Amino acid sequence: MAVVSRVLTIGGGFSGMAAAIQMRKADIAVDLVEIDSSWRPEGAGITVSGPTLRALDQIGVFGEFKRRGYLSDGVELFTPAGHRIGEIPTPKPVGSDVPGGGGIMRPELGRILADATREAGVSVRVGCSYTEITQHDSDVEVTFTDGTKRRYDLVVVADGVHSKTRALLFPEVKPPQYIGQVVWRAVLPRPDEIVRPRMWLGGTVKAGVNPVSPSHMYMFVTEARRDKQQIERSAWPQLVADMLAPFSDPVLTAFRSHLLAADAAIDYRPLANLLVPAPWNRGRVILIGDTVAATTPHLASGAGIGIESGIVLAEELARAATLQDAFDRFHARRWERCRMVIENSAQLCRIEMENGDKAEQARVMRESTVGLTQPI
């Protein structure tokens, strides 16, 4: 029997939904509140690693991912001129038969998990958040934005990288820090020759593509920028096309024309990271996902470590003798894995920005990939 019987999850992102779904499997009553009334994840495509697919399989949504996304193995590496350098293997995660990786539209993955959340019996309220959290010895009283009040044994906070709850409970933690690099993403038609992720390595700009469905792929371009800037949306297509101009590979040249078309969906994000020192709970309130462990996308594991944390928290709540025991076990399983992803991703980011040692880049990628395949 779980050490808690009634839990509130604040935030309906990937990690919050994963925690809610898995807690319901342990017969815990779960309320979930999400401030976005449309409950719609933003963004273009998302690269999903094998370990993340393993986590989605554990939740029970891998079949839907397979139907609505794209699965593949390996990452192809090319020079800017189109000469094939080699391939980075994406080994299967330990204890699972899922492929080494895949891709999907971020809103599509959000819909898959949202459907699974409701099907699990989670009580969902959208367009709702909280105004006050008051902790007592045996429970937590929460006042919501609709004026209602409810009491819970535990509050799980997954309200994102700009969490107001983190600012409230961890005032000593600085907001996420810009890391000096931005990523541009665009959704484009998928040509037949793109059957797995492909990257072109050249200078301080890295370009890549990943299929997200049988018909489409998304392109990502990372660029070093000294300062975090606001850029007019109307300028985005030309800026990205200009960044690709030094790449003479005919495949990339063809993509540039799509970028300039009116139907190209482009997303621009300055990159930041965050790692809050453990423990991630204050009393009966615990923070998970991007709220405490936000990474840059260099290991394609940001969503993955958040989803994993939701799974692990539910597992420990189901088997621990006390709530503190559950917290201790949770932190023991999550801290080092999250730290590795965030710090190694930052190291890869620095190497890219500085056009640094490719051997070091390969070593960090290889060690991280092998580490992530291990059980959670």
Rank of each mutant, 00 (worst) to 15 (best):
G63K: 10
D242I: 04
W184S: 03
E352P: 00
L274T: 00
V98G: 02
V3K: 06
G13T: 00
G310I: 00
A120M: 09
N273P: 02
D153K: 00
A2G: 08
P191A: 06
P214K: 07
E132L: 14
I104F: 01
V285E: 00
W39A: 15
F220R: 01
V205R: 12
A29Q: 15
Q324K: 07
G371P: 11
D115K: 09
V312A: 08
A44Y: 03
R111Q: 13
S234W: 07
A294Q: 03
A29V: 08
F62L: 15
A167E: 14
I21N: 00
A81R: 09
R150Q: 14
V183L: 14
P191C: 10
Y218H: 14
Q181S: 11
F78H: 12
A158T: 06
L260V: 04
L32H: 04
P214N: 08
G16A: 08
D192W: 02
E232I: 04
M219F: 07
G16D: 04
R363A: 13
M105R: 13
Q181P: 06
A224S: 13
T145C: 11
R256M: 14
R68I: 03
T291C: 15
G310P: 05
T52L: 05
E316S: 05
E343W: 03
R106F: 03
G306S: 02
I376M: 14
E34S: 09
I351N: 12
Q181V: 09
E354N: 12
G13N: 09
F14V: 09
I266M: 10
L244P: 04
A20R: 08
E132Y: 02
A320S: 15
V155K: 02
T296A: 15
L372V: 03
V3N: 06
G101S: 12
M17W: 02
V161S: 13
I266D: 08
V364S: 03
G95M: 08
L56Y: 01
P51Y: 03
I376A: 12
P51S: 05
S234M: 07
A241C: 11
H298Q: 08
L169H: 04
V161H: 09
G12P: 06
A26V: 03
P375S: 09
Y178H: 12
R198Y: 10
T52S: 13
A207G: 11
T143M: 12
G356K: 05
K164L: 11
A320C: 10
Q361K: 09
I133P: 00
G100F: 01
C338W: 03
L348Y: 03
T148M: 11
S248R: 11
S96P: 05
D73G: 04
V251S: 13
I307Q: 01
P277S: 12
L188T: 00
K164C: 06
A300E: 05
M1W: 04
F170P: 01
D139Y: 12
T295Y: 01
R84P: 02
I88F: 14
V33M: 11
A362G: 11
V75S: 05
A29S: 13
V173H: 05
K149C: 13
K174H: 08
S5C: 02
A26F: 05
I59K: 03
Q229G: 00
L32C: 07
V30H: 07
L239F: 04
E108M: 15
H216I: 02
S5R: 14
F327S: 07
R366D: 09
V142A: 05
I179S: 15
C128F: 00
S123T: 08
A265I: 06
D267W: 14
Y218N: 09
T131H: 11
M365P: 01
G43V: 05
